[in-house]
Nucleic acid binder design. Structure first.
Length: 597
RNA sequence: GGUCCUGUAGUUCAAUGGAUAGAACAAAAGUUUCCUAAACUUUAGAUCCGGGUUCGAUUCCCGGCGGGACUACCA
């Protein structure tokens, strides 16, 4: 039974005994006592004032008195306004630390063999351009939320749907054919995804030039866009692709191969991975078949021009196109097919899509469509909708070259970490390999934490001119604290100090120390909330608070230099436990921690 | 036009309806004979506006104003 439940229970008893009224435990609000007041936990008295028919102060006094007499855990109380502040026995905190310290997997569960399956889709790139900062947010959130759900006992399957076909892919292919002169990643030394992206941009440039020319000849913009030779050629290519034209298919495979090699590098650097990858080229036909089945079953309808639609007006939405008049599929068609394949492959209990909030409407529709097609899981799909990453000037646009490239950004962060390391000179005794390792861990830690500490639902701003900080509320701040603790623990081990044994609960520990234990003990609750709310930010903020407190402790209290042996042991155990929570928590964010930095 | 999201220090972010709205960066000033100063300590600075519900509102409701997304036979 955790502390909060103990208090809730005794408060309920006190109200029953004092005023003869039964209250449920969820009526009892308990919060951590604010720093400026004395105590550890605070009970909000206001809800009981009516029951007691006394002032908030008097009510608080009565309840406080009752708790003090009827509970061993509470050692003192005070009432300020309507707030009853309770002080908890030092012995309770020390016993709690003993328990936590002995539990190496504190705060997380390990999914059992037959745990429920949650599938998490994230990343979902197009194979016509390299990944940028927006994708980084998606990947980091997806990977982290998978870790967090695992820690909450789910068996998680990480998945990726690659949008590997369509008109946009054909645009890159066509431009390469026309302007590429046989350029390859090998011949140019360019990363594959970058090379393909270059031709996507080249297409757009040439296409715009054609439109301009046609408009000069008197054509309207709309007409020009439809009739430019390049777009017609790209459409022809898409059709040839759908008809399995060997030459087009071969080029498609080659160029996608370049892109995948590039993506693999980026994913590896980012530290994310997948258990199962789906490709749109495999799923869109399945989706088409499902839509046609839906049409036969009168769930959807066909218009005179042969296009297929879903009428969603009963759900307060519009009508939605599912198949074009030429029979080709759209984004939605493909998502229906992918869903069908996934549920055939796995016994999925919960499906989570990590996709930007610009597609809220899409997923609202998808949920309804899947439901209408008779998939019972349709209604319960989760769209983990996150906000956009914006530049100070506004949204990033691939075609306008205002994107922050994922590879570049990661490389910059790592470089900055390396420079800082050099300046501080703390790794002078390390090998080059160790230095690189630390630079990578710290650089990526800064980037990942920067992104994950923000509430995922909110849009966030990234200013490329002001580089991401390494001081303050940052990943390196937390990593540094970990490294510092590890250094102390190493020294303890070197001097053969054993701090694994039980600590005497009579030890006179300070407020700071008991508060640290209280913070540590809250970790499992944070992990659970992060899972329920789909919010890695909760973990990040928790880690920061813990580390900030620990640093103050570290500054004010001697550990190895403490003379009293039992106290030294206690502080080592406390530090070790903090280190464990840091490592576990950062792990849930997909951030590594260095042994030294 | 409709639907949804959003508005907190100069900037980037916090705050299950609870106490004097927390941090960080930037600014100003300090702390190394002592376990890693990527740390610690001070100082100054904010809830878009107007109503309502409540003992209590940054939070919930209504109305403005500002920002964004979606509303494609694009993905």
């Amino acid at each position: 039974m955790n502390l909060e439940s103990i208090i809730q229970s005794v408060v309920a008893q006190s109200v029953k005994s004092l005023y003869n009224v039964d209250i449920t435990e969820d009526q009892i609000q308990i919060q951590k006592t604010k720093k400026e007041f004395e105590g550890d936990l605070t009970v909000v008295v206001f809800p009981f004032v009516k029951i007691a028919r006394k002032s908030p102060e008097a009510t608080g006094q009565e309840i406080g008195e009752f708790i003090l007499r009827n509970n061993q855990v509470v050692s003192a109380y005070n009432v300020i306004k309507g707030f009853l502040n309770l002080s908890i026995n030092k012995a309770y905190w020390i016993d709690l630390l003993n328990t936590i310290h002995a539990n190496s997997s504190f705060g997380t569960q390990t999914p059992t063999e037959n745990a429920d399956i949650m599938m998490v889709e994230y990343s979902s790139p197009n194979t016509n351009k390299p990944l940028h900062l927006g994708h980084i947010r998606n990947n980091l959130l997806g990977f982290s939320i998978a870790r967090i759900q695992e820690a909450n006992g789910w068996k998680v399957i990480k998945t990726n749907i690659v949008n590997d076909r369509g008109i946009h892919i054909c645009k890159s292919m066509l431009a390469w054919k026309l302007f590429g002169n046989g350029e390859t990643p090998e011949s140019s030394g360019m990363k594959g995804d970058l090379l393909v992206g270059k031709y996507y941009v080249a297409f757009d440039k040439a296409y715009k030039a054609e439109i301009k020319k046609l408009m000069e000849k008197g054509m309207s913009e709309e007409e020009a866009k439809k009739n430019a030779p390049l777009i017609l050629e790209a459409q022809k290519m898409l059709l040839a692709w759908e008809n399995n034209d060997p030459e087009v298919r071969k080029l498609w495979q080659t160029m996608n191969g370049w892109v995948y090699a590039g993506f693999d590098e980026t994913y590896k650097q980012m530290g994310v991975n997948f258990d199962k990858i789906y490709y749109e080229s495999d799923t869109y036909l399945v989706g088409k078949a499902e839509v046609e089945r839906g049409e036969k079953e009168k769930v959807f309808y066909r218009r005179d021009d042969n296009s297929v639609w879903a009428d969603l007006t009963n759900d307060g939405l519009d009508e939605k196109l599912l198949l074009r008049s030429d029979g080709t599929s759209v984004y939605m068609t493909q998502d229906i097919g992918t869903a069908k394949l996934r549920y055939a492959d796995y016994n999925i209990k919960k499906m989570v899509y990590v996709v930007g909030n610009e597609q809220n409407y899409h997923f609202q529709v998808l949920s309804i469509l899947l439901d209408r097609l008779g998939f019972e899981w349709g209604k319960s799909l989760v769209h983990f909708s996150y906000g956009m990453v914006e530049l100070p000037e506004g949204k990033m646009k691939s075609r306008e070259g205002t994107v922050v490239d994922a590879d570049d950004l990661m490389a910059e962060m790592i470089e900055t970490a390396r420079e800082t390391s050099e300046e501080l000179g703390k790794l002078d005794n390390c090998t080059e390999e160790e230095k690189s390792d630390v630079a990578r861990i710290v650089g990526l830690g800064a980037l990942k934490y920067f992104i994950l500490k923000v509430d995922p639902r909110k849009n966030m701003t990234f200013n490329p001119k002001e580089s991401i900080d390494f001081n303050g509320n940052t990943g390196p701040f937390i990593q540094y604290t970990y490294a510092r603790i590890k250094s102390v623990l190493r020294k303890a081990t070197e001097s053969s100090i054993d701090f694994s044994t039980k600590i005497d609960s009579a030890l006179p520990i300070s407020e700071k120390e008991s508060y640290l234990i209280q913070l540590i003990s809250g970790f499992p609750t944070v992990v659970k909330e992060a899972g329920d709310e789909f919010s890695p930010a909760l973990i990040a903020n928790y880690e920061y608070e813990l580390v900030k407190e620990y640093n103050q402790f570290y500054h004010d209290f001697p550990i190895l230099k403490e003379e009293y042996a039992d106290m030294k042991k206690f502080r080592l155990a406390l530090s070790g436990t903090v280190a464990n929570v840091i490592r576990t928590g950062m792990g849930l964010l997909g951030i590594d921690v260095p042994e030294r930095m």
